[in-house]
Design a protein around this nucleic acid. Structure first.
Length: 221
DNA sequence: TGTTGATCATGC
DNA sequence: GCATGATCAACA
């Protein structure tokens, strides 16, 4: 399966097909090797499943399945099916924020329709032997949508007011804003406290682990 | 032991 | 550097 799925049904079918498989089996089907650990291959699992499911390659700011409007997210889980990491959503724009509305934001678009695929994340299990879980096609409820919008607006407002460097990951109920960079030296332009331009670490929006935990609890138990 | 801030790989 | 895919690892 490398071609783009023709509809959501086919996408779900492919996802269900590999539920219960080990990552090494999928890798073998695709003719690629599994790394021994993810320390130097942090995005490997996500990219493996992208390939298998036929997601469009590339690093464009688009959904993984543009024609379906569906975003793919793989989530590491523990033995109880609980997510053990936060989920990266998108970069946060740090300039040109005037008039930017939630409805037009990347976060809103990406989270409007998500295919979640849980994968065992216990570091004691060799990567190739980790099992893929049941897929979950999700759309935020009205309540979730509202809370996401509140978080986003609160964070974006502070960025627009030049307070990006005083935002911590403690802020936000569902979303959080955290560094998203190659390292401490990768800087980008932002608005400073006095309204002048400053250089700061690029930031990204993440979904809290506590939220995906609830999400999986609701749907897998 | 859960979270936050930092980091790794890749393509362009 | 930016955007994709994320997980690591130090600290509270």
């Amino acid at each position: 399966m490398h071609s783009s799925p023709k509809d959501i049904e086919q996408l779900l079918q492919r996802a269900h097909h590999i539920a219960g498989w080990q990552l090494g089996e999928i890798a073998a089907e695709l003719g690629i090797a599994a790394p021994h650990d993810l320390r130097h291959h942090k995005g490997w699992v996500g990219q493996l499943l992208e390939h298998w499911l036929g997601a469009s390659a590339g690093s464009r700011p688009e959904p993984d399945f543009p024609h379906l409007g569906v975003e793919l997210k793989t989530v590491p889980i523990d033995a109880n099916y609980k997510p053990i990491e936060s989920t990266y959503i998108s970069v946060c724009p740090l300039t040109g924020l005037r008039g930017l509305r939630w409805q037009d934001s990347a976060v809103c678009h990406k989270l409007s329709h998500v295919l979640w695929i849980p994968v065992q994340g216990d570091k004691s299990i060799p990567v190739a032997q980790r099992h893929v879980g049941m897929p979950l096609l999700w759309q935020p409820t009205a309540d979730e949508q509202q809370q996401l919008q509140r978080d986003w607006e609160e964070l974006i407002e502070q960025v627009a007011l030049g307070k990006v460097e005083s935002i911590t990951a403690h802020q936000g109920e569902l979303l959080q804003l955290r560094p998203k960079a190659a390292n401490r030296k990768a800087l980008t332009e932002a608005i400073g406290p006095d309204g002048c331009k400053i250089n700061t670490l690029p930031r990204g929006f993440y979904l809290r682990t506590s939220f995906t935990k609830l999400l999986f609890q609701r749907n897998f138990s």
